[in-house]
């Protein structure tokens, strides 16, 4: 299928400097979720955040997205500082369902465009049609989310995110609730779409295999309060096939390295 013309530059650099996040409890105490995170993600890079539940990776993702304000430090997307609300460069795919059940698939995918006043823009409409086509949702554009399978709803949510042409994609365990085969299909679909426009991607997962399959680098977080334990480079070639890449010896080596960093934190044995 022909590549769609885009008006937005590919990816944006993300600079996280001295970010901390803590919460005040009802009893007046403080819970530290994140402690002094310094990280730079290059433009167009695909980075995975892995770590145990509660380590703060989603908190950091929300801080990058502008949905949560850090207690200290700063986050820049390109030249712009993130300050309490989502920047227009951001696309976010949540773990939970965010498709509006009372709108059709097409309406949901066009929602971000309508918020930007582009509902009737010809190029924007073409982009929606293209996304629905390659997502295999063109035949169900008039259906409601309750009439779709879980995999189809995730693809629709992905289209809604991509329709606004973000230069940064933030994804919080987007495929976690799906079965193995559907998840693999969506991973491949994501890689194929991403290879077209090379946005900067931050992908949160607790699945180490998924992290190695998708990412250029894996950022490993400790238990709460979350800090960066290690960063593992993934030396697998691009473009990737999610099935074939698992047969490569580099895949296994990278998985072992990631596991080793985490197992030290939790005193676990070898995988």
């Amino acid at each position: 299928m022909a590549k769609l013309q885009t008006t937005r530059p590919a990816g944006a650099r993300i600079a996280i400097a001295g970010v901390e996040k803590s919460y005040t409890t009802r009893a007046g105490g403080r819970i530290e979720a994140l402690t002094t995170i310094d990280l730079t993600i290059a433009a167009g890079e695909f980075v995975a955040f892995v770590g145990p539940s509660g380590c703060g990776k989603t908190t950091l993702l929300n801080a990058i997205a502008g949905l949560a304000e850090p207690s200290a430090g700063s986050i820049h997307i390109g030249e712009r500082q993130v300050q309490g609300k989502p920047l227009s460069e951001i696309g976010y795919l949540f773990q939970k369902e965010t498709l509006l059940p009372w709108y059709t698939v097409e309406h949901n995918v066009s929602l971000g465009l309508s918020y930007r006043g582009l509902k009737h823009d010809a190029q924007a409409r073409q982009r929606v049609d293209h996304l629905l086509q390659i997502a295999g949702l063109a035949d169900v554009r008039g259906a409601y989310p309750s009439e779709l399978s879980g995999g189809m709803r995730r693809r629709a949510a992905l289209c809604a995110m991509l329709a606004i042409e973000p230069s940064v994609l933030l994804m919080d365990e987007p495929f976690g609730a799906l079965d193995t085969f559907t998840r693999a299909g969506l991973q491949q679909y994501l890689l194929d779409l991403w290879s077209e426009s090379r946005q900067t991607v931050v992908f949160v997962t607790h699945d180490l295999e998924e992290a190695v399959t998708l990412a250029d680098r894996i950022v490993i977080f400790s238990k709460r309060p979350g800090r960066i334990l290690d960063i593992v480079e993934v030396p697998l070639p691009r473009p990737r096939n999610v099935f074939q890449v698992k047969q490569m010896p580099e895949f296994s080596a990278c998985y072992q390295q990631t596991w080793a960093a985490l197992s030290e934190e939790f005193s676990l044995g070898e995988p």
Partner: peptide, 8 residues
């Protein structure tokens, strides 16, 4: 959150 993230 979803609407907010889309710029709503």
């Amino acid at each position: 959150d979803g609407v907010r993230a889309l710029g709503g």
